[in-house]
Design a protein around this nucleic acid. Structure first.
Length: 170
DNA sequence: AAGAAGATTCGCT
DNA sequence: GCGAATCTTCTTA
């Protein structure tokens, strides 16, 4: 994932995600389209950004066809470029904690509601690149922090990565 | 118009 | 580990 803010560039490898497929009652699209979640219905490859708990922004990559609400929550990133800038944005010097967790990830990449609806498949302020090629074992667990459909194994992470939030046991 | 819940984080114990 | 922080949206009166 790459973030361009002014002359600065922030990037990292996505190491943890959660899926919120169509019809999932824990997904924000479950009750239909609203002002808040309309980006989820744009079709695949757009940013869905929302603010929660009065403290945190979160970033999803939209999925599925236009009109079908579905998304993938990005929960953790291994920092690559722009680490000094991330440290300032996150107010910490611990590289491991810069983007470990969905709210921290958004803060480290300077993501707020202005990026809601942005196309993530063309280079703009925020996009998903393919430059980093590295094989990894993918672990799977239930999703974190939800109260519906809690048994579905829809959290995915790079096994053994120190940049993953939460449990790393399959 | 008021209240509750929410895909979390941080600071303290 | 636990509780507060703090805002948006949706529900209920």
């Amino acid at each position: 994932m790459v973030r361009k803010t002014g002359p600065r560039r922030i990037s990292g490898r996505i190491v943890e995600t959660e899926a919120y497929p169509p019809g999932d009652s824990s997904g924000h699209a479950f009750h239909g389209q609203t002002v808040r979640n309309r980006s989820l219905f744009l079709g695949p490859g757009f940013a869905y950004v929302y603010f929660i708990y009065g403290t945190s922004y979160m970033l999803n990559v939209t999925a599925d066809e236009p009109g079908v609400g579905a998304g993938v929550l990005l929960r953790a990133v291994e920092p690559l470029e722009g680490i000094d800038l991330m440290k300032r944005l996150r107010n910490t010097d611990k590289i491991r904690d810069l983007a470990r967790g969905p709210g921290r990830l958004a803060a480290a990449f300077k993501i707020d509601q202005r990026l809601n609806g942005v196309d993530l498949c063309t280079s703009g302020p925020l996009w998903l690149g393919t430059a980093v090629r590295k094989t990894a074992q993918i672990g799977t667990t239930v999703r974190i922090g939800i109260t519906h459909e809690i048994d579905r194994p829809l959290r995915f992470f790079e096994a053994g990565s120190p940049y993953v939030s939460g449990p790393s046991i399959r």
